[in-house]
Design a binder for these strands. Sequence first.
DNA 1: TCAGTCCTGGACCGATCGGTCCGTAACCGC
DNA 2: GCGGTTACGGACCGATCGGTCCAGGACTGA
Lengths: 194, 194
Amino acid sequence: MARRQAPGTRERILRVASRLFQENGVRAVGMQQVVEEVGLGKSLLYREFDGKDDLVAAWLRESDAAWWAAVDAALAPHDGDPAGQLLALVELVAAAAASPGFHGCVFYNTSSEFRDDDHPARQEALAHLRRMRGRLETLAGAAGAAHPGALADELMLVVGGMYATGAALGPDGPVRAGVAAAGSAIARHCATGH
Amino acid sequence: MARRQAPGTRERILRVASRLFQENGVRAVGMQQVVEEVGLGKSLLYREFDGKDDLVAAWLRESDAAWWAAVDAALAPHDGDPAGQLLALVELVAAAAASPGFHGCVFYNTSSEFRDDDHPARQEALAHLRRMRGRLETLAGAAGAAHPGALADELMLVVGGMYATGAALGPDGPVRAGVAAAGSAIARHCATGH
DNA sequence: TCAGTCCTGGACCGATCGGTCCGTAACCGC
DNA sequence: GCGGTTACGGACCGATCGGTCCAGGACTGA
């Protein structure tokens, strides 16, 4: 009948777009640039995705899934030790924020690039950040924090701070203080007695 | 000889540009939109500024100056009490991050929009953030912190976290926990004895 | 009042944006 | 091998980007 559709096209596009968006920001990357670096024509891209907004949203969904997979891997060794898992999660963020070529958390960055609440990219980004806080609160509760929500908020502060300063001030900046600050917060909220 | 140049043109442009950049982000605002909202022609804008990059840099310089003026005003009541000034500075950030229509710290936002280290806007933004950390370290030293740099880093984390989460999660999110976390950090680092 | 000067608004420029569409050729069933 | 079908690359679209430039007129000095 006809030639067969090449497999893995969507994944290839997503991989290239992910790298470009991460390194340069979404608004700074044009669709033309994406297809050129993928080595495909535009029609392929627009068959796989409805438009740039859809591509960006798909990228964020994939990044979200990859993040939680990394979290699961980092938390597994501390199974049964929620306080240790809390610290391991912060350490995972610290490692990301201190890695070479880090340009900020893609979810915070993208939510700041698209301010319209109706924009799908913003919705995906904010949903991820809410999930992040939710996970922290769950772990905080399991760790026996007196006020799980308060501990989760404090850890979100540390995490957000590491992302922001890691991108702006480099890996030798405040990022180094993050894990210690988180440990102090966890200890303070989970102190047994009274 | 000729008609005189209308006074205050530069200031009017900067005020409009400041509002647009703050609300929408820099890349989302076109020069056409700026001149339309100012009600002037493009030639005026390009006589006052060398181009968009220059306009953005000038906006950041003005925002930087305005910020330090606000800091001075907030710290004045606590003259002679560096620890209190540290807390007042954090409270100033918390108030900004919780204010309605807050869309993130313009310096963090702009540094994430322009990743090229040679870009004047990025340079202005990063310079502001370094000044911010420097001010915190100076105050931390005056407050008798055992390790002023460490306290400054921890407070930068709280500040960056409040900016990030204030924009993404709203004023009722982790921002509320920021001042308490900062107070705890200050007390821990400035504990007298041992 | 008139001539001269230069401020001013907006038409205009090439480049690039996100997105559409068509000619070509690769591949299939027969 | 051949005809039909469909995947594909890239030419092309209008809109908008940052930036330039010019015709017109408002103001000044005499």
